[in-house]
Each structure stands twice: as C-alpha cells, then as structure tokens.
Design a protein around this nucleic acid. Sequence first.
DNA 1: GCCGCCTATGTAAACGATTACATCGACGGC
DNA 2: GCCGTCGATGTAATCGTTTACATAGGCGGC
Lengths: 334, 334
Amino acid sequence: MGKTATIRDVAQRASVSTATVSRVLNDDAHVVEATRQRVMDAIADLRYSRNDVARSLKTRSSRIVGIVSPELTNDFFMGIANGIEAALKKLKYSVIICSSNESRDEEKRLLKVLVEKAVDGVIVIPASDKGSHLKPFQDAGMPIVLADRLVEDFEADAALSDNFGGAREVVAAFIRRGARRIAFIGGASRLSNARERFEGYRAALAEGGIEEEPGIERFGDFHMESGRALMKDLLGRENPPRAFFIANLYMHIGATSFLLSLPEAERRGIRIAGFDSMAYSPLLGFCTLAVEQRIAELGGEAARLIMDRIGKRDKPFPEIVRLPTRLVVTENER
Amino acid sequence: MGKTATIRDVAQRASVSTATVSRVLNDDAHVVEATRQRVMDAIADLRYSRNDVARSLKTRSSRIVGIVSPELTNDFFMGIANGIEAALKKLKYSVIICSSNESRDEEKRLLKVLVEKAVDGVIVIPASDKGSHLKPFQDAGMPIVLADRLVEDFEADAALSDNFGGAREVVAAFIRRGARRIAFIGGASRLSNARERFEGYRAALAEGGIEEEPGIERFGDFHMESGRALMKDLLGRENPPRAFFIANLYMHIGATSFLLSLPEAERRGIRIAGFDSMAYSPLLGFCTLAVEQRIAELGGEAARLIMDRIGKRDKPFPEIVRLPTRLVVTENER
DNA sequence: GCCGCCTATGTAAACGATTACATCGACGGC
DNA sequence: GCCGTCGATGTAATCGTTTACATAGGCGGC
C-alpha cells in the first residue's frame, strides 16, 4: 500500500511535465492527442486520482457549496437539498449538508466551519427569523443564499415558495367546495412564510366574502406537537369549526393524529386543507386539498442563485425568486 | 474587500513567526501566555480564519467523513446521518452527505469524488446488495464502513440493527396478543436486513407453534408502492389474513394507505405489527406493535467504527456491531 | 562561572496541484 | 531562405499551512 500517486508520478511515467498532465486533467486544449493518450494511460496504470485539496488551494475554489438546514430528518428540507445537489452535480460541484438543529448559535458555528473549509458559497435554510449573525460572513465575502424563508436584518438572494399565493389558492378552492367557516392552524406569524400563508388565508376569506373570525386562528411552531395541541384546543371550544386550513405539514400530521384518537362520531365530517404533501400524505385521512411546493425546483433555484453570486460577487441587488405552488386534490376525498 | 488574512499576516502583526501562530492555532503547548495572547489579539483584529484546505494538504487529513445514502428524503437514513454528524462533531470532524439515488453507478461515482476531496473515510448505506464496486477504494486505502446493511463481495466494518432479533421479538409479542395467522410483507430476501427480518419472523412463528404458510408471505422492494400492492394482493386472495407483520416502514405506509381506501367494513379488525417508527407513525392506524431501531445510536456506532478505522488502518478484521431494537406498543391500540 | 539542558520561538522545506512565462520547432509567406 | 507566428510542451513559482530542525536564552548544579 504505497503512497498514492501524484501528478509528478504521472508526469514521469508519461515522460511529460506536470504542466501537461494538469492540462489533460483539465481538458485544456493545446495538447496533442498522442500525448494526451500517453498521459491517460499513465493515469490508469498508476490509478492516479487527483488531489482536490491541492487543487482547491491553488485555484482558491473548492467546488463545494455548504447547505445549512434546521434538521436532517425532514423530508421538506432534504427535498430542497436534493434539488440543490442535483443541480450542482452538473457543474461538478459537491455539497456539504449540515444540521443546525434549529439553533441559531449552531448555525453560526457551522458557517464558521464552512468558511474554514473554504466552501465557495453557502445556502442557508434559516433556523429562526433572525439573520444578523449571517451578516459578518457575507461582509467577509462569502456568498450566501437563503432558501425557504427570509430573515430579519439580513439581505441576500433567496429562493422561496409563493406562500401567499399558495395559501390563497387552496383556501379559495376549499371555499368553492363548500367550506365556509375555516379555522387556521399555522406557524408563528413572526416567521416570514408563516405570515405569508396566514395572509393568503385571510385574502381568500375576504375574496370569498367570509368574515374572519379571530377566535379560530391559532399559531404554533411548525411541529407535530403544536399541531396536535392546537387542533385539540380548537375542537375543545364551544361551537368548534369543522373545516381547517393547516399551513404546515408537520402540524397537519399532529392535528390528524389527534383526530384519530377521537371517537369516530366526533371526528366525522371534519375536513382539512393542507400545505405540502409528502410520501406519507396518503395517511392524512381528513385532508381533501393541499398545495404542493415545488421543492426540487426550489433547490434548483437556490443552486442557480448561489452559482450566480459566486460568479459575480458584486451583483448589486439581492435576487428573490418566488416559485409558484400547485394545487392538489387529495385522493382521500373520493 | 481585501484578500483574507493569512497566517503570515497574523504572524507579522503579532511580531512572531508563522510557526508560533500555527502553534497557538493548534493548542500546542510550548507557547507562553503573553505570546499566545498577542497572537489571539492579532487574529481577532484581522478577523483571521484558518484555511483548512491548506491545513489538509499539509497534514493529509481533511477532517471530513463522507456519507453516501440511497436517498436524502428518508427519515431513517437521515436519522443515521444525524447520529453520525452528532458523534463526529465532538471530534471536530465534518460530514459530506451525498445521495446515490439508489444507484450503484452513482454510488461508485460518489466514492470517486469523495476520494478526490480527500475525505478521511466514508460511511456507506448501500444502495443495493452488491458491494464489489467498493472494493477498489478500500484496497486503495480508503477507510469504509457500512451502515444499515451488509453487501455481497465486500467486507468492512458495519453498524447494523439486530434485524433478526427485532423481528422475532415483535412477532412473538404479536402472537402473545392473540395473533395466530400472521402474513409477512417485506423486502426482497436477497437484501441482508430484509432476509434477517424474515428469518426473525419465521423463528417467532416456530417458537409460537404456528405453522408457516408460504402463501401469505410476500416480498417487495422497500417502497410505498410495493407495500400497497402486496397488501392489496394479500387481501385479494381467498381467505385473506387479518394480521400482518410488515418489515419496513415505507411498505407499512403504503399498505396502510391501501387499507384506508377500503370501505370501513372490510378493514375492520385488521392488525399490523411494524418495523421502525417515525414522526408520522401515529398516522399508521392499524399498527398495534412495532420495533424501533436505535437510529441515532446506529449512526454513532458507524462514526466510532470509521474513526477507529481511520486511526489504525490495519485493524485485522472487520468489526460488525449489532444494535438491539426496542419493542414499542403503539398508542393506536388503546 | 561554565556546561548542559530545557523551553520558547524562528527558519524553511514540504504538501500536490495550477499557471504565467519561457522555450522550441515547424511552417508559411514573401 | 529568412523571419514571424503559433502551437505544444516545459520550468518553476505559488497557494497557506504544518513541522522537523535550528537557535537562543535562561537556569540550576557543580
């Protein structure tokens, strides 16, 4: 198990200089076919594999983009990561995916690590509604792109879903299908996309001529437990609603699991319009409508944005991309 | 936006040599407190950040471990990745997570990329039951650890669940709770963990004095669609079983979603024992029992194995770790 | 007071690639 | 036949660290 071969070994074996080897490695023109072939043979013989670390040092480009996600075990975030990875693969870029565990401090620490690793850029799915801790990195020249949501005190390119439009569309469709009194369950309105979805809901109500009823609007935190608690809460009040718009998938799961714990009679006739659908959505028995985000495309756009920003670091203004959502009539309704 | 500061700039500003700066950066002893302080100040003043690429080049260690997973959008695999990341973080290691998209060729390509990136080791969750394409990398000196399952034609350290024991335990419990005629739905028996789970099921039947009935044993491919189809198939036969052991979560979801599409009367009394549980498991309404894998620990063990292997590359034999599972009585049963 | 040793620090050579610049033929135009 | 040009290849500096080795005080023992 000798040391791995270097470009010098290859050069020697092919009787050329390292410059020439490097040229064939990088598909440079200006190298005649015969030479190229000799080099290729030497590479194969020696099982040479280029050392990208050395390459990165010299070229000051690691061809790596960092992704910081609040969680790893979340199909929505990983769907975005997937979209990013697929898009970047074509450009021979790789991706380092890190979990901030929904902590702002960890997010900051990860940025520091990624800077040390000399990634060419970072795509952040923010863990909170704050962004000030990202600023120093951006100021130091690190390209940063936001995905899924915006944050306070920080401006950057961003790839987002049209949360407002999606919510409005699904609630409007819900109304067309006869729902009148529609409760809202969603994330804290301090978070950009939660707020946008809530506003979309309100817009649809207004356009449908339905009076808003603040008593049946509940805000939680994007987690199952929260969805479960809010559903319980709403059903526990006097004259409970029977139709719900639940603006987040995990809250939707939690709410549904609460419904399943009720006696058959109590839950009959309950209908839900949701946001997002995933592999396990067929299990969401009360769901009749949902809007899907174009998750992979969202990742693809984030990838495009980061590459643009890497390419020309002084693009004047942040570019915000809004992806349309898609209305889905759930099978469950039939 | 000047160039970022280097160790030389820091050295100059602190009036020491680069060697000394490097020493304080690496917590080397042999540097007196006053000097250390001066260096720290210079680092802060210049907002110096170490260039890990150069460090890696010199030390021949990138402090990065690659993870190759068949999918990103899969909470089970990402749970493992999470466990790995958490364990490695303590050792100042980072992680590159890549998706092989369940393709062996892509798996191979990723290994090549990771070798170029000079990762210190790779943890592979195999995309198939074949492993021969991993051998050349191992032979070339790359530490490789398997997670979740074993493969043919390739020997390496591995972190696995006790699939046999887990399946046996849950099926035995199922029998104790009155199930007699238990159908099997699982992955192709060519895959190591699918086979092990099937054998666990058979063992439990044998121990419970229940005769095996090959007609109600079905093998699919670990996906929702497959679970759905097999459930449909089993229920479509004459004298269909009412109790099922479904040896994989996604098949379980698929099977459940088929049940939900049936009229109430037809699905009444059906009971399922499952493998794994996740955030959305409360939605699996027919499930009464499940075994949980210790997913995070599995990742932690994989991390330990890879670090061991990185430390002493010539450990004689592959080490196989089997993690116990945990029986869970599902809320749904109450 | 000298010697040896130990501790803090400096010097400079790597690590393995890329690439600006130099070189060297060959070839075509006149 | 000479010169200019251009295409293929080589030479060697460089990227930012780490680290083996050198050095230089300082101090204790005798």
